[in-house]
């Protein structure tokens, strides 16, 4: 297991969370405590036939086929901003 030291502010940025300094300080202590407990997994003996994903647990999934979807007006109903039957978002492309 890696060191349980976590750079909370950096990881929060990856998750698109803009934490306050107080939140970073609180989470730092709590998350390191949780990761210390998680470290116990390093003691488990892992036979070679185990898989590191969910494929054995979930089995096969159905084919991904197109089907009936929600009506456009229902989808747009909850959008905070919309225009011309489309969801409106802030500018995505930066100025040159």
């Amino acid at each position: 297991m890696p060191n349980t030291r976590i750079d909370v502010r950096y990881v929060a940025k990856l998750a698109r969370l803009d934490l306050s300094s107080e939140e970073v300080a609180t989470f730092q202590i709590q998350l390191e405590s949780i990761l210390s407990h998680v470290e116990s997994l390093s003691a488990a003996y892992l036979p070679d036939d185990l898989k590191g994903d969910q494929s054995l647990l979930l089995g096969s999934m159905r084919d991904d086929l197109p089907g009936e979807s929600l009506a456009l007006d229902l989808v747009l109903h909850n959008a905070p901003d919309q225009s011309q039957s489309q969801i409106k978002v802030p500018k995505v492309v930066a100025d040159a």
């Binding site: 297991m1 890696p2 990881v11 998680v38 997994l41 994903d53």
Partner: peptide
């Protein structure tokens, strides 16, 4: 944050993959 950390590059095998096993 915890979930993002255990899935992040360099930690995935040590945490997520190991936990799945």
């Amino acid at each position: 944050i915890l979930g993002t950390y255990v899935l992040s590059s360099g930690y995935y095998d040590a945490y997520y993959s190991r936990a799945q096993k």
